[in-house]
Design a protein around this nucleic acid. Structure first.
Lengths: 149, 149
DNA sequence: CTTGAACTTGAAGCGAACTTCAATATCTTC
DNA sequence: GAAGATATTGAAGTTCGCTTCAAGTTCAAG
């Protein structure tokens, strides 16, 4: 059988307004309609919706996701483009993880900084320790890319 | 000495228009002006700008970053709030990394899927292997949260 | 057959984060 | 002191990804 837009949206965890918006933007070229004009989502269409959400999490724009969905719709002649796209996505996600890791180092430095400041009642305390090079080792490597606020 | 807006912006790697926008939005309450009205960035102000960029990378909104910058401006009475904020940010970044990791699993499944499809000239090939449970082990765990496109 | 929930469309509205524009002022260098 | 780069402001414009609205249609239950 097939899902209504409401059921498909709920299965994926997005509002129906969003699903209609994606359809209007050409991200769902595969979704069929009933005789009376209602959208009918097959299981594979629900999976397509899930794929859209996945690609969004990789930081892809709706415009680029539309390109991919239309490649899917065109069939086997676009397999290479789709493969290349996933290789690019892998690169992109890996560097996002790397960037977040480095951001996390900075945040952890700040956690230490403010723990120390709160304990002393003033941020002069951690500031002086930093000036004296007196920081936990875990923290001091993050201090290289560091700041005063 | 002090930096012009152009020098400060270049040091941090953002356009001057962005720095002016942040100032207008109250994210730079500490930046002083010369007698003639030009902004004068001290080293600590440039660090403040860098901190804004860092917090943005953690997914924080400008509105919340403004709150933090104003706490900084208010001095030691807001140390606890600032510490708590960084603890929250740490949590947030850790879960973003987790989510990206899981997204990466899905993307890697798709890389395998399309490698197999391109080699065979059709996506029926990987589809059938999936149906038969015939996937590399690294890949099959990602297949649990999987899709058809 | 009626009622109410869920669906349809197009158009307008929204919030976030900037960018661009225009008109003017200041700074730096020759 | 003239030129040219850089700065100032407020206001308007842009992009993205939705959400909301209004007016109407269709479906499902009793």
């Amino acid at each position: 059988m097939s899902y209504s837009i409401g059921a498909a949206a709920e299965a994926v965890g997005v509002p129906t307004s969003t699903v209609r918006y994606y359809d209007k933007e050409g991200l769902l070229p595969f979704v069929k309609r009933s005789d009376s004009g209602l959208r009918q989502f097959e299981d594979s269409d629900v999976d397509g919706l899930r794929m859209i959400e996945c690609l969004k999490r990789t930081g892809m724009s709706l415009k680029d996701i539309r390109q991919f969905m239309q490649w899917c719709h065109e069939g086997d002649s676009t397999l290479r483009e789709r493969r290349d796209m996933f290789y690019e996505r892998r690169e992109a996600v890996e560097s996002q993880i790397e960037e977040l890791r480095s951001t996390l180092d900075t945040i952890e430095y700040k956690c230490w900084f403010y723990d120390t400041a709160v304990a002393a009642g003033t941020d002069s305390a951690p500031r002086e320790m930093v000036a004296a090079g007196d920081m936990p080792p875990r923290i001091s490597k993050a201090h290289d890319r560091m700041m005063a606020r």
